[in-house]
């Protein structure tokens, strides 16, 4: 009896979490299927199945290009930040040397500056490197917010891994690079996938840099493309189109989570290693 009650409470909690997270998204889908003045009425279920908004998102601008750009930029950002993050985390988390605390704080300090303040300096930098209106410029500028975060999170996780493993590897004559790749990486999958996902989404959603550092429609990323969707006239808000575009943008991320979610939950619990 007590057990049954526990189950009910648990699933009620699960249902509440889902409702809370998904309802606004669900409402976006409902809205994206509406047209014209219907927007101004409250409806809990779609009454019409109007796909025009989805069609016009792709017709009015190179939205497929924008999606591709976003995928390219975000993937490159994740790859670079994870690579730099893991190597730095090994150094900062497992090796004792002077100035480590200071380094960690400096890395953190980079993410204490408001984005608006960094914007114009970054703009000069990007132009100086000749990377204006170039996806590579976006990748580099995104490092400013993904790198501190990945370095810190991975350092914390790396630090807490059992030391016996590393000792054994050192005894076997493994060099630091081998230790990272063969010993630590397999254990860190949950942390790697989690930080990777969070970095991916952060890059995926970034707006201010993407708007300022790109100029042509075919170089732009999705959030900018969404912000550029406009109605027939200056003030009109094409709500249906924006919602349709948002639904399209969110789907790849959901797919990504579904693909990688096995990796979020594995690591130590799956392995036989104990600390």
């Amino acid at each position: 009896m007590k057990r049954l009650f526990g189950w009910i409470a648990f699933y009620a909690l699960v249902a509440a979490i889902i409702l809370y997270s998904v309802f606004p998204f669900y409402y976006a889908i409902v809205t994206s299927l509406k047209a014209g003045s219907q927007l101004f009425s409250v409806e809990y279920f779609p009454t019409t199945w109007n796909w025009d908004n989805y069609v016009s998102v792709f017709r009015e601008q190179p939205f497929a290009y924008n999606l591709l750009n976003s995928v390219l930029v975000s993937s490159a950002v994740v790859a670079l930040s994870l690579f730099f993050g893991v190597t730095a985390a090994f150094a900062l988390g497992r090796v004792q040397f002077r100035g480590r605390g200071l380094l960690l704080m400096t890395v953190l300090g980079v993410s204490m500056f408001p984005q608006v303040a960094v914007l114009s300096g970054m703009f000069e930098l990007i132009r100086g490197f000749g990377l204006y209106n170039n996806l590579l410029g976006l990748v580099i500028s995104y490092m400013i917010f993904t790198l501190p975060f990945t370095v810190w999170v991975l350092t914390t996780f790396m630090r807490d891994l059992p030391k016996e493993l590393e000792e054994a590897a050192i005894m076997d004559g493994a060099n630091p690079w081998e230790i990272i790749v063969k010993v630590f990486m397999p254990l860190m999958w949950p942390a790697l996938v989690t930080t990777g996902l969070l970095a991916f989404i952060a890059a995926w959603n970034e707006f201010l840099f993407a708007l300022t550092f790109t100029l042509t429609n075919t170089q732009r990323t999705v959030p900018v493309a969404i912000a550029l969707i406009s109605g027939a006239s200056q003030y009109e808000l094409p709500w249906g189109n924006i919602m349709a575009a948002s639904v399209i943008v969110t789907l790849p991320v959901v797919v990504l989570v579904l693909i990688f979610q096995r990796r979020i939950v594995s690591g130590l619990t799956a392995g036989a290693v104990k600390g």
Partner: peptide
């Protein structure tokens, strides 16, 4: 040798950060 390796591993990250963050921060 571990400390040497550590600095070697840190170098690319630090160079990148100094590059992207150093100038804008200094300028502001």
């Amino acid at each position: 040798s571990r400390v040497r390796a550590a600095w070697l591993f840190l170098a690319p990250m630090l160079i990148l950060l100094v590059m992207v963050a150093g100038w804008p921060l200094f300028r502001t």
